[in-house]
Design a protein around this nucleic acid. Sequence first.
DNA 1: CCATATAGTCAAGATACTTGACGATATTCG
DNA 2: CGAATATCGTCAAGTATCTTGACTATATGG
Lengths: 167, 167
Amino acid sequence: MVKELDEKTEELPDHVGWRLWQASRAWQAEFAAAMRAAGHGWFTEARAGLLGHIERSGIRQSALIERSAISKQAIQQLLDGLEAEGIVERLPDPQDGRGKLVRYTRKGLAALRDGDRVKMEIERRYVDRIGEERFTALMGALRALAAGKVAAMDEDAGVAGEVVESK
Amino acid sequence: MVKELDEKTEELPDHVGWRLWQASRAWQAEFAAAMRAAGHGWFTEARAGLLGHIERSGIRQSALIERSAISKQAIQQLLDGLEAEGIVERLPDPQDGRGKLVRYTRKGLAALRDGDRVKMEIERRYVDRIGEERFTALMGALRALAAGKVAAMDEDAGVAGEVVESK
DNA sequence: CCATATAGTCAAGATACTTGACGATATTCG
DNA sequence: CGAATATCGTCAAGTATCTTGACTATATGG
């Protein structure tokens, strides 16, 4: 089944961008597969990213928009989908007649717990695979990279909107 | 303009999947921006990913499909776009009446050179940012992860093109 | 009260994929 | 040889994600 690429020794990419992409895709595929296996078939990457920004206690939709680097319309569409799946619900904000509160349903909270568990399992597998030391180095480098990216800005708050991104 | 997120100290994601995604996206954005700045306005992330698999000497479309983890139809659509932009051209394969050869045009080769230069520049910036040692550790860990993935999954023939090289 | 900003929605479209169906060519094998 | 089968590329249609523009409803600050 495996192709005999060896015969030609193709030079496949090995620069940092490719490696990051490759690793990121692999993680996402593993996570999504595990979530689907856990019965959360509605799970997608974009939704995962959004859910990561919704606190257990709920959040105002406008606040959600601020911290997710994508357009409010995109978020709305994602929320529409999640609401239809019964993961979150939207209630009117008693504090503001314009606003809405986004909250997990019970089903959503269960999914959240499974998500945390799956993440830990994947992380454990990663450590098994490459060793604790290497894994720590990986995380350190990735964190440093992320921090360095915003080193230009001192304001911690200003950073949040940018770094948080949608995922 | 700056939001006061500090007051709540939101716990932003910090697991390995998030970090990988974040780093991958940042790299791609940086690369695409630099390419567009270099006059290659047709450049997008998806196209970049595909172009990375096309050798200077050209490649059979079917071979391209094998090593790109997406469907052949998606690749075809990307190639359609690249062909329309004049980056690649498709010629009939003299060896196989069904097949086609995908080759860079002169314009495509120029873009490729710029791409290599940009990659090196980004890598240099990364090293400046987090230090040579950390960067080396990052690459080592990512390579190890990719290599370990092959051993871990065997039902993954579909992405053979992606992982085979890791040995 | 009025001007303006904010919260959310609706609509349309672009990009990057997917699956399914299909015709044309190659290969294998009775 | 010729028929079954596999491969190569294409066409068509649909999904997921994200965009911009236009709009309504509510809030806020002179």
